[in-house]
Amino acid sequence: MNKTVNQKAWFLVLPVFLFVAFNAIIPLMTVVNYSVQETFGNNIFSWSGVQWFQDTLQSDRFHASLGRQLMFTAIILAIEIPLGLAIALAMPRKGPWVSVCLVLMALPLLIPWNVVGSMWNVFALPEIGLMGRGLNALGFDFNYTRQPGDAWFTIVLMDVWHWTSLVVLLCYAGLVAIPNDYYQAAKIDGASAWAVFRFIQLPKLKRVLTIAILLRFMDSFMIYTEVQVLTGGGPGSSTTFLSIDLFKVALGQFDLGPAGAMSIIYFLIILAMSWVFYTLMMRNEAK
């Protein structure tokens, strides 16, 4: 068989190529450019090699932001994944309450992110917010604008409120897709409720859980808007996560070189960790 050689086919992929170039490759290359040059005003650049990368990787400030970021992501994954799974398991499978539950679950996902930040900002204020005042009235010394622990508590609570629904909806979709035959067979085999969860529901939910963990990992690792609106990274720098730090470096101090280097490192970390997660969770799938 002779393959038809027709170079005109390249024209057909040209639009896609241009689209990808302008919306991904060129902006990314700009960042790469910045990351290896020293920038002065008046469009004067000079080559600086890997200087900014070295500086960033060795800076205590970057280490601290990265540490906070990892801590935050670990906490919200540890809460949202089990909680979302538990809520999905508890949700009704049929009847009029299904739509009520689904609508309630979808609501937080429909609110714009900066609005979520503002809502919780007011909600948690110790002087006027329902939660802030309530906690103080109960005898807790709660003030998220001054105490780092309280700020973390509020941010984690806000993220759980905002994003657990996504995990719930994914898990619920997975649960509904399990044929009834499995439950009946388990009943006949004398399986306990735990065995049904362990050997039927959990294995069948593996794929949706993988998706849920990946999405929540990436989103929480890039969290910016809500925290920026709620605490602006404070008090002090106690809630300054990577994206907020990056914003400060790039647009607060206008250090474009270090910001470029930081962006690339940030991007590579997310890429690498997503790959590790995915590989680990899909390890047994191929067999």
Binding site: D181, Q184, A185, F199, P203, K204
Partner: peptide, 15 residues
Amino acid sequence: NIAQVFQFPVVYDTM
């Protein structure tokens, strides 16, 4: 104390 085989095969995938 009965046994039943269903239309679609039911196996415990992870076992």
